[in-house]
Nucleic acid binder design. Structure first.
Lengths: 70, 70
DNA sequence: GCTAAATTATCCCGTTCGGTAACATTTTGG
DNA sequence: CCAAAATGTTACCGAACGGGATAATTTAGC
């Protein structure tokens, strides 16, 4: 369970998880219905990545996003 | 603790939390350094909202984003 | 070193989003 | 209830960016 404070934090988790699933960016992107460039940038912490696509990728990788009061 | 499956889920939580904090969109947007339009659209679940701005808003409202394996 | 994978670059059209203000909706007070 | 006030949504303009496809370059694994 990781706490996300920045887009970079998010990218890191996604990359880890993708690798753990033995998927290349190309395959993962195809499965999520997005481009490889998006995934590459997302994993590197691009702050302007779109939320909808980001959620899609997370779900594809079996990641659950939760939000709660601090 | 809410599970986020879609941009709409996220928007809902953010709106609730903003209201609980007695902030108008205008004030909240100013505090987060974004435009009112972005916040309005974010709360209504716009899937293309940028992740960086979204995280900023969440943090301003004292929301913690977590991500973990399902 | 060779090969697959990942990052980066380029082209390019569509979209984002801030500022401002008009318009719509919701809330409030009498 | 209804009018006024507050809040939220949207249109407009314009500059800037997103991101898909593809190719080139860099990096990593064997």
């Amino acid at each position: 369970m990781s706490t996300i404070k920045t887009p970079a934090d998010l990218g890191k988790v996604i990359r880890q998880r993708r690798k753990a699933a033995k998927l290349t960016q190309k395959k993962a992107a195809a499965l999520a219905g997005i481009g490889v460039r998006f995934l590459s940038e997302l994993e590197r912490g691009k702050p302007t990545a779109q939320i909808g696509k980001t959620i899609k990728v997370a779900q594809l990788l079996g990641l659950e996003i939760q939000i709660n009061e601090r």
